[in-house]
Design a protein around this nucleic acid. Structure first.
Length: 396
RNA sequence: GCGUCGGUGGCAGAGUGGUCAAAUGCAUCAGACUGUAAAUCUGACGCCCUUCGGGCUACGUAGGUUCGAAUCCUACCCGGCGCA
């Protein structure tokens, strides 16, 4: 199911192959986010051209959207017209994102909402030891999602890799709460394994424990010892949650040694360029992140010298490609200069977001290809240094 | 020529005696975005002073009425429309 082909001699980086029911994923790999069973703005054909290997969809949203139709659901592969690998997130992140994170504005760097702002973004989630009560509106009815139901939904969705239901805690939570959330996650992890019935799906357990060393180690030890096919690392990570990168990657150092060498490790929701290098270096095999697709829609295009906002006026008469040496479908087309794409964004043309998404997704997938190659060549540390310096020199 | 309607910040367009440096939209500029609340959000946008705040100049032009005018009056300039 997962094989490590080559290990870097100077770090924990490794090249591997993950075999799922729908093919192979060469790792380290980027998992492209398709929450609602589609990668926003991209057709299945577009996706192929972006070198995408695997997509992650979301249990919570598909459950809410499909409702009764879930019983007769044809499966994600058919629905998405995507023949390759798919994973589903369990809905555990929504316990956080629609709850505490929404209320407190966590996730925006350096900014937490004031009490006034909180009123307009109320917490829509109530967590108990048994599961999570969600509501769509502050005054709407509650509905319950727990480990058992999450697995049942994920089995109906039919992804190749499913995730255990967890509670993602916040960096604002103290040790006591984080411990409680971690213990719930552990309890739910065992339930997920118990109730899972399909043999053609892999299941990953999820390590929590926030920024606390004792909890991270405890969680890694506990989850790592359970018979999962792989492991996700989630929770309060990275500067997105108000923590420094250094601190968050120290956490990986606490966790990874407790996870089995021969099983894949997924870094949940993390995926900026420096994160990728640091994650791979720490022993991560797969990443997923909204950044390539969301920022594309917002006009931010990524290149080896940093990202830029194509909507800015300076690109109005810029007849260069997004990125000179890029082999993505957009950069390879004749009539897709920065000037064209700028204009499409200004005209609110739907093609704008599509072009931007194609480029960004290709960029990140291609970066992973280069990382894999560098590991195979025994050159990862040099490649990392060179690439990060390239970005730093021009600024992000 | 007569009549009539109108001339507001980069543009469009509110305001029709004080709470107006002037709503709103667009444009512009800056920023954010990390298991998708997000093809989204935030801030700036007359000039000057260090922010709170204060000062100055502004609603076609020039005068006037008034404690006070983008808002009222007069003349003029410009534009649309109608009639000659």
């Amino acid at each position: 199911m997962f094989e490590v082909i080559k290990k870097d001699s100077e770090s924990r980086a490794r090249f591997g192959v993950l075999k799922t029911a729908h093919g192979f994923v060469e790792t380290p790999a980027y998992t492209i986010v398709g929450t609602h069973a589609e990668v926003r703005c991209l057709s299945p054909v577009d996706l192929v051209s972006t070198k995408t290997q695997i997509i992650i969809a979301n249990t919570y949203y598909l459950w809410r959207t499909l409702g009764d139709k879930l019983e007769s659901f044809e499966g994600l592969h058919k629905r998405m017209n995507w023949p390759a690998s798919i994973m589903t997130d369990s809905g555990g992140f929504q316990v956080f994102s629609l709850g505490f994170a929404r209320e407190h504005g966590v996730g925006k760097v350096g900014k937490f909402f004031s009490s006034e702002e909180r009123e307009s973004r109320p917490n829509l989630v109530r967590v108990t030891d048994d599961g999570a009560w969600f509501k769509e509106k502050p005054d709407g009815p509650e509905f319950f999602l727990d480990a058992k139901l999450s697995i049942s939904i994920q089995e109906k969705l039919g992804a190749d890799i499913i995730l255990a239901f967890d509670e993602c805690s916040s960096p604002l939570h103290d040790h006591e709460y984080t411990k409680k959330a971690m213990e719930r996650t552990h309890k739910w992890a065992k339930i997920c394994l118990d109730v899972k019935t399909r043999n053609d799906q892999m299941i990953y357990g999820i390590v929590q424990g926030g920024a606390f060393e004792d909890l991270r180690k405890e969680s890694a030890k506990f989850i790592g010892a359970l018979p999962f096919h792989g492991f996700g690392i989630g929770g309060a990570f990275g500067n997105s949650f108000g923590d420094s990168k250094e601190a968050s990657f120290k956490e990986l150092g606490w966790i990874i040694p407790y996870l089995p060498e021969n099983k894949p490790r997924h870094f949940l929701g993390i995926g900026r360029i420096d994160d990728l290098f640091l994650g791979v270096e720490a022993g991560i095999d797969t990443f997923d992140c909204v950044i390539p697709t969301r920022e594309a829609r917002h006009g931010s295009l990524w290149t080896p010298v940093g990202r830029f906002d194509i909507k800015k006026g300076v690109y109005k008469n810029d007849y260069r490609k997004i990125q000179d040496d890029c082999l993505c479908e957009v950069c390879s087309e004749k009539n897709t200069t920065r000037q064209n794409i700028h204009e499409l964004f200004k005209n609110k043309d739907k093609e704008a977001a599509r072009f931007a998404t194609i480029h960004n997704v290709f960029f990140f997938n291609n970066l992973m290809t280069q990382i894999r190659r560098s590991i195979l060549d025994g050159n990862f540390p040099r490649f990392k240094e060179r690439f990060l310096r390239g970005i730093a020199s021009k600024g992000l």
